[in-house]
């Protein structure tokens, strides 16, 4: 266990503050959506907010701001492979020989990349 009673008392306030901040960010992301930004900008804003929220959950609620090196190590490895998994299949998909033609039989398939 990582903290004595005094520490936990101090943390309680923090937990509620973070909860409130998360709700505010949810409001912001919905509001940003109402502004109908151009797609690339909208994606950037929404993902930036989501990453901020996720970091707050991970750092405070999951106590990642103060963890042991084995857990950091395992998560670092996971993050590296996560990035590989997210990016490399897409790169491979984009790097195809020649232009994209409808695969079999035609239809409304891929518009360019």
């Amino acid at each position: 266990m990582h903290s004595d009673h005094g520490d936990v008392h101090a943390s309680v306030r923090k937990y509620f503050m973070i909860g409130a901040a998360l709700l505010i960010f949810t409001g912001i992301t919905v509001a940003a959506n109402l502004m109908h930004l151009a797609i690339p900008l909208a994606i950037t804003v929404a993902l930036a907010i989501a990453i901020t929220k996720a970091s707050m959950v991970a750092a405070v609620f999951m106590h990642l701001s103060d963890e042991k090196k084995w857990i950091y190590g395992a998560l670092l490895l996971t993050v590296v492979f996560f990035i590989v998994l997210m990016s490399v299949p897409s790169f491979t998909n984009m790097d195809s020989i020649g232009r994209h033609e409808p695969a079999i039989g035609g239809g409304e398939h891929p518009a360019g990349h």
Binding site: A42, A46, I49, A54, V57
Partner: peptide, 11 residues
């Protein structure tokens, strides 16, 4: 869910 919400509902 924090990621699912924008990815599925907003974008």
């Amino acid at each position: 869910w924090i990621f699912l919400f924008p990815v599925l509902y907003l974008l």
